[in-house]
């Protein structure tokens, strides 16, 4: 296990997000402040529509906040344009989604190679093969996503997320589309790899049991942070 828990890796400062609709301005997130130390795991809890995914998106630089700022590995994301943020993600960030979000035109191997190639990592094919083998898909390298079961697709997505050895992994309801038994095995795998690579894990979930595995829990309600067990 790598020890890199000595400093803050992700920090939200007074973070807010509003969107303008025909009916007026809608506040999705308001005054979110928290930080996560490198190598720790944080669960963001909340009901549907509480703003979990929006917060995850802002933390990962997939969207820009209306107020406040996100500091990722000491860099304020507001200072970067979309391509700059993409570069940071390519080098340091992994993602696991509820819907797996694999690209259907690419094989399992090609899906896992994708972030490695984007980050211009050496030997992408070999690394991807090893990772797929590690998550139990060594025999399914050339299968397309629609030829894999839900659990296998999520394993593939996890292999893809860990392929670049990210400093931080964002997971959005990673077991939301799986039955409980498969979900359990996926979580075991996720935390196993997380622990092996010393990754900072930020996971959005509405599952209290799952949140208990994490080091910390944040509770969101209607876009506000209502609980922080820091």
């Amino acid at each position: 296990m790598v020890d890199n828990t000595s400093r803050t890796f992700v920090e939200a400062r007074n973070l807010g997000k509003q969107v303008t609709t025909r009916e007026g301005v809608l506040t999705l997130l308001e005054k979110i402040n928290f930080s996560a130390a490198a190598g720790t795991s944080v669960a963001i809890l909340g009901a549907s529509g509480s703003g979990k995914t929006t917060l995850l998106g802002l933390l990962a630089g997939l969207d820009v906040p209306t107020h406040g700022e996100v500091i990722l590995d000491g860099r304020c994301l507001n200072d970067y344009d979309e391509d700059g943020r993409a570069q940071i993600r390519a080098e340091q960030v992994g993602f696991v989604f509820q819907n797996f979000q694999l690209l259907f035109g690419l094989t399992a191997l090609e899906n896992v190679m994708l972030p490695l190639e984007l980050a211009q990592a050496p030997h992408p094919r070999k690394t991807a093969e090893q990772l797929l083998d590690r998550v139990g898909l060594g025999e399914r390298l050339h299968h397309y996503p629609n030829q894999l079961s839900g659990g296998e697709q999520q394993r593939c997505a996890i292999a893809r997320a860990f392929s670049i050895q990210p400093r931080c992994l964002f997971a959005d309801e990673p077991t939301g589309n799986l039955d409980s038994e498969t979900g359990k095995r996926i979580i075991e795998l996720l935390f196993e790899l997380n622990s092996e690579q010393g990754t900072t894990l930020i996971m959005a979930t509405h599952d209290n049991n799952l949140s208990q595995i994490c080091n910390r829990r944040l509770q969101l309600d209607a876009g506000r942070l209502v609980g922080n067990d820091d």
């Binding site: 979309e82 993409a86 960030v93 690209l103 994708l114």
Partner: peptide
């Protein structure tokens, strides 16, 4: 692709 770090 964007999420995985692809540039424009």
């Amino acid at each position: 692709l964007r999420t995985l770090g692809a540039k424009k």
